[in-house]
Structures are given as C-alpha cells and as structure tokens.
C-alpha cells in the first residue's frame, strides 16, 4: 500500500514537471518550423506577436514575406537568439514569453476584412480601421511571384474557366500560359487585362462566359502558369479546330494539341 502511494506521488510529480517544462507556445503555435515563403495560421500568430512588441509594422496577412523576415531577425538579435530569420521552437517559445496574442481579435478582423494592427500597450479596439471588402478566405490566399498581382490571378482564372473548364488540367495551364506569353510579346498589350480584353482575342470575353465564377482547379492552373509552367512551349494562339471560323488561324505554325485545342506560334 505504502509502495503504491509512493508510485502515485512519483507519477503526479512527473506529470507536474512535464506540464511545467512544456513551453507555453505549444498551446498557440504549431510545432512547425516556419521561414520565408511560409503561409498560414502560424505566420499570422508570428506577425501578430512581432507587431505586439513593435518589431513588425506591416499588415498581418499570414504571408511570411520580407517584412516578417527582417522583423523576426531583429527580434532574434535583441533576445540573444541565433539570427537566422527562422521561427523554430526556441524563437517561438521566446516570442510567446515576451508577447501576447489575441487570436480571437486577429481572426475576427481578418474574417471581416478590416485593416487593423496588434500593437501592445494600446487598446485593440482603437487599432481597427473598417475595410470595405471581405478578406480572402484562408484557402484562397496565394503567394505570387513579385511581378504578378492577385487581380492578375483572378482575371486569368476567370478567362481560363470561361475558355477551358472542360479541358484537362494541362489544357487549362496552357490557356493561362498563352495569356502570359502574349503579355511578354511586343505584338500584344503588356498587361494581363489588356491581353484578356483585347477585342476578339478570347471567345469567353465575347460570349460573357468570362464572368462565370472560376473553380479551384482553374485557379490552381493559373498559379502553375504564373510560376513558370508552359505546356504550350511558347504558344501565342490556340483554337478549337471544330469550331474555329477564322481561316487565318490555320496559317499559324502549330506546336501541339492539348485536349480540344491546337496551340500555335
């Protein structure tokens, strides 16, 4: 009986030690190590905590860009941590010990699309500027190469969905690539919207199908094209041989067929 009592005490002591020694951060941050290029909940918390202490000055958006990177390095330098701009367990633990994070407030503002900050020492309700449009949903947030905007992505997704929603994935990436190839070519307008809305350039613009809501697959296809994939091997035109009415399009040098479309130079 006495032996059992000691055992119970020992287990209780172990559990207590484990609870106390577990860093506070495990309740908040995930166990993932995050760095430049990351995106998501952990980055939102990282930005909010860095802003709480005045290291991070930009918008809290969940994207680990350079603003977050330099802020994190400055924090690491100040608190004697290895300065690498990477949020590992030690850095996260230190952040949790040194700052507060009002998750509910931050999530609430992000969902409402408000512009806000999360500085310490100032009432949070005084740090909200109400926005006019809802913030993108979590799964719609994307990180693009510097020369492209979210509007480019949206417009191209509309065009791809309107033009090629019945095509294989490769065919959808291909349509997006043609738009980008045209933007780069001196014979076409040099913006995505200029290319998409060039009269008679795309059937989907003429028949209004460009205004259909694109699905996730079309967006994914555009994202791949924006990131460099071009299944057309530099095509500037494409057409459906069953429906094309222009005789001129048949005179273009053809590169390859994907789904129902022939891609040409």
């Amino acid at each position: 009986m006495r032996k059992n009592k000691w055992l119970v005490w020992f287990i209780t002591l172990c559990l207590l030690t484990m609870t106390l020694s577990t860093p506070k951060h495990s309740e908040a941050f995930s166990g993932q190590v995050i760095e430049l290029g990351a995106n998501g909940e952990d980055v939102i918390e990282l930005q909010a905590r860095l802003q709480y202490m005045g290291f991070y000055k930009n918008q809290i958006d969940g994207k680990f860009g350079y603003g977050t990177y330099w802020a994190l390095r400055n924090f690491q330098e100040k608190f004697g941590l290895p300065v690498d701009g990477i949020a590992g367990q030690k850095t996260k633990a230190k952040l949790v010990n040194q700052s507060n994070y009002n998750k509910e407030f931050v999530r609430n503002q992000l969902n409402k699309g408000n512009r806000f900050t999360h500085y310490g020492g100032k009432p949070l309700e005084q740090q909200v500027k109400k926005g006019t449009s809802p913030a993108p949903k979590k799964n719609e947030q994307v990180q693009l190469p510097a020369k492209y905007s979210q509007q480019d992505l949206q417009l191209m997704a509309n065009a791809v969905y309107g033009e090629a929603r019945g095509e294989p994935y490769e065919g959808q990436v291909a349509v997006a690539s043609v738009i980008l190839n045209r933007v780069e070519d001196s014979k076409f307008p040099n913006t995505v919207s200029g290319v998409v809305f060039q009269p008679r350039a795309f059937t989907a613009v003429a028949d209004g199908q460009i205004w259909l809501t694109p699905n996730a697959r079309a967006k994914e296809a555009v994202l791949d094209a924006i990131n460099g994939w071009d299944p057309t091997e530099n095509a500037l035109y494409y057409f459906n041989p069953d429906t094309a009415t222009s005789a001129w399009i048949w005179t273009r040098p053809q590169i390859k067929t994907i789904g129902k479309h022939i891609f040409c130079e």
Partner: peptide, 13 residues
C-alpha cells in the same frame, strides 16, 4: 532561391 507556400502546394525556384 525562393519558396512560396500556397494552400495545397509549394512552389520552389
């Protein structure tokens, strides 16, 4: 030189 996390995939350069 670059990595970008999106909701389903990573794009790396």
């Amino acid at each position: 030189v670059e990595s970008r996390e999106n909701h389903l995939v990573w794009h790396v350069v």
